[in-house]
Design a protein around this nucleic acid. Structure first.
Lengths: 118, 118
DNA sequence: CGGCTCATACGATAATCCTCGTACTACGAG
DNA sequence: CTCGTAGTACGAGGATTATCGTATGAGCCG
């Protein structure tokens, strides 16, 4: 009862073998979601949904996190009322070695190039 | 007139600095387009649109090539009635070092893993 | 010129997607 | 139990997208 209690609801995640490259690329092709993933990678910790300051409503935020989860990019776990989000680095690195780092580096580069506030 | 004659029509391409990572990822998130890019990278040559055996009509093929061109992934040049397609490797490598290779490697890996006919 | 091929343009259709608002559930604190 | 907070579910509106069919243009060959 000690640990199962923290996972009140179960959230559907794709298994490692079910992760599709196209789905990952599609998930990251949205500026909002790319931003989420970048922040998640920057601080190497799990974050709650509400810790991201996104210029959209809560509904839309939920939607984006679901796309990220269903594509296999992030793992979501309930802890109390909060939902912790973590990058699935192990799975992605195992499936597509080097891809995640290249993508993050590319996003950083573009951010610098365009003078983004990041 | 000698060289401009070969380029009957001019096709709009984004400049190197205008290429956006999100657009590139979106372009590659479509299975059809990812396949095109993989073939283009495999044979390191320019290919005409009709040299790809895609399970869609010509109209749709044209559409996908336009998306790839407008996102900055491929460069298209007319040669006679044929339109030659080439990967913009220089531009992409310059903007996002290592990204293209990671993406192609990831696509190859997945193709092997899923037992695709490629 | 006349026909053939490669590719485009335009319109249409159906699906997907981003965004939002409102109503709702789950959990923890008092 | 009641309230507040975190997040979901559902539905809807509007934009983008993938696909197709048909008609059209641009260049080559006889």
């Amino acid at each position: 009862m000690t640990e199962t209690a923290t996972a009140g609801r179960a959230l559907p995640h794709p298994e490692r073998e079910e992760i599709r490259l196209e789905a990952v690329l599609h998930a990251l092709s949205d500026p909002m979601r790319l931003q989420i993933v970048r922040e998640l990678a920057a601080r190497e910790a799990e974050l709650t949904c509400s810790q991201f300051e996104l210029p959209v409503t809560k509904s839309t935020t939920t939607h984006h996190f679901r796309v990220l989860r269903e594509s296999g990019v992030v793992r979501q776990v309930y802890r109390g009322t909060a939902k912790m989000n973590g990058l699935r680095r192990d799975d992605l690195d195992s499936l597509f070695p080097g891809l995640l780092d290249s993508l993050l580096a590319a996003a950083d580069r573009q951010s610098v190039r365009l003078g983004d506030g990041a």
